[in-house]
Design a protein around this nucleic acid. Sequence first.
DNA 1: GCTGGCACTCGTATGCGCCGAGTGCCAGGC
DNA 2: GCCTGGCACTCGGCGCATACGAGTGCCAGC
Lengths: 338, 338
Amino acid sequence: MLSERRLQVLRAIVQDYVGTEEPVGSKALTERHNLGVSPATVRNDMAALEDEGYIAQPHTSAGRIPTDKGYRLFVDKLAGVKPMTGPERRAIQNFLDGAVDLDDVVARTVRLLAQLTRQVAVVQYPSLTRSTVRHVELLSLAPARVMLVLITDTGRVEQRMIDCPAPFGETSLADLRARLNSRVAGRRFTDVPQLVEDLPEGFDLEDRGTVSTVLSTLLETLVEENEERLMIGGTANLTRFAHDFPLTIRPVLEALEEQVVLLKLLGETQDPGMTVRIGHENAYEGLNSTSIVSVGYGSGGEAVAKLGVVGPTRMDYPGTMGAVRAVARYVGQILAES
Amino acid sequence: MLSERRLQVLRAIVQDYVGTEEPVGSKALTERHNLGVSPATVRNDMAALEDEGYIAQPHTSAGRIPTDKGYRLFVDKLAGVKPMTGPERRAIQNFLDGAVDLDDVVARTVRLLAQLTRQVAVVQYPSLTRSTVRHVELLSLAPARVMLVLITDTGRVEQRMIDCPAPFGETSLADLRARLNSRVAGRRFTDVPQLVEDLPEGFDLEDRGTVSTVLSTLLETLVEENEERLMIGGTANLTRFAHDFPLTIRPVLEALEEQVVLLKLLGETQDPGMTVRIGHENAYEGLNSTSIVSVGYGSGGEAVAKLGVVGPTRMDYPGTMGAVRAVARYVGQILAES
DNA sequence: GCTGGCACTCGTATGCGCCGAGTGCCAGGC
DNA sequence: GCCTGGCACTCGGCGCATACGAGTGCCAGC
């Protein structure tokens, strides 16, 4: 176990390094933080911290920088979440309040997060898993062609074109529409399959094929759309770390384009609370020198999706966590209202 | 007027520079292209080309690189569009054929373009301006709350929530839905306003307020959605030019996030044919060291939107133009089919 | 008008020495 | 036992001087 002072030293190292982006030495540390001891003592502590793997030297005779393990300890034990100030809160709320539809909410959220944290923001579209059906609409486009439109309580709309096995009359369609809605409207997506299971039975034999086709398309839509979409913003912020970069920036941009990768990372933990993945804790290699701060958000009590930021491991964790948490909270409110 | 050989020299310089990314000298030129003259002669030609502003030296005693003006001449007079090979065409078609809906078409197109050109791809969603209405759906969500769903012939779906001034019955709604569709289905967006102008007159006095509200929301949707959306991909390709870097890449990333800027650039020319904007020809400052190759695409004969790529002015114009043109053609086909 | 030759320019690469921040270790003191 | 001041050592970065070579412009000759 590390002594209290050594933890303080680690905290000071993280803070200084995050601020200056340069390896921090024992002398500078004692000057900037009143630790009440001399540089020599700090040096001993640093040697100990290095032995334990919390910090490292880029090269002999340079200052120390935190390792992933060091950041981890910092985040877990040494730092809180820095709350937003009043004006910041108001700004967030005002900015999000202007949104006109779901796309706009997501777009504004991304922009806001990127601006607040000055990092890359990632916002997952509200997931359908926990959503409920607001309405299912069926439109006849041609005798044997039907368009299915699914509207969710989060305001999302999905459409699918369906080629029917047999012509399907307007009246049958209206009938199906009515029955379908009376069963599934207001219900959760996960419950839909069993709710519509016996629906074809109520129809004439000739129409059953089409009804089944429509239903299976509906179920497919529910499943497919769980493969969520994302919106990303603030990639220009990556260039702020032009030092280390060209090398690091490329895999990050690639990872960001591979939405599958990001979705997997975001979805890895079921915990709707704040998650911080530091450096190599990210399974994806291209993101080994970045940290991801994410949190669930949703209308009402339940988390329906995640949002977060991707930045260098050397980031301002308390501030970033504060911004992410605050934004998630306000987005949840907006979604609940609409 | 430049002599034929001088134009050949310019062409050779552009080709070599694009290939090697390094200033090209007279000796290297004569070695790689059989111009039939000695380096000394080429030097004279180069001096002339430099006087005319087609090429420049980064510093005294280095090779020459083309200027924006040089690229312009190259594109206009010296280079054709390099057609895609048979296998490439097939690959494009196969890749795009797998798309399941409009979002997917656009997403695949972006990915494809980025891959083919190894640059940043930009695809505008099919515009509503020239589109026609496939169907307008009205759903009653609450007594005084209606959802408007607009479906276009390109498969795009837009929805709007409407708060009605007065409760609106199911029958009135069905009536409105029927009348609305009989008037606008299959018609162009631009024609819609006058087609629905006198629609409220056919309704009871008490319903007219609501009908007007619905109609104005519909018209708004048409207008608003002309402010088009874009999809962007391949930003990781920007890192291929790590030379000039941090300086150039940042403003480009910023420009790419400002969709408004891009839309304006894409929309600047009405010409649906291929447009190449080179370096400073782009009004937006951040893109002064990039070129944009864009072309209109659409289902049937008419262009409904644009797509293109953004890359360094030092790009393979013939190849890029070929890829852009080919992709636009196939996307048009896909859209026409669906 | 093309060519070979030649002197010149200048940016890049290389080697060297200095400087200073930072370290580890040790002996002495509280 | 822990902290402290002192000290020798390390090593990366920076400035400078030098060498190299690619490329140029110009000129005289064919």
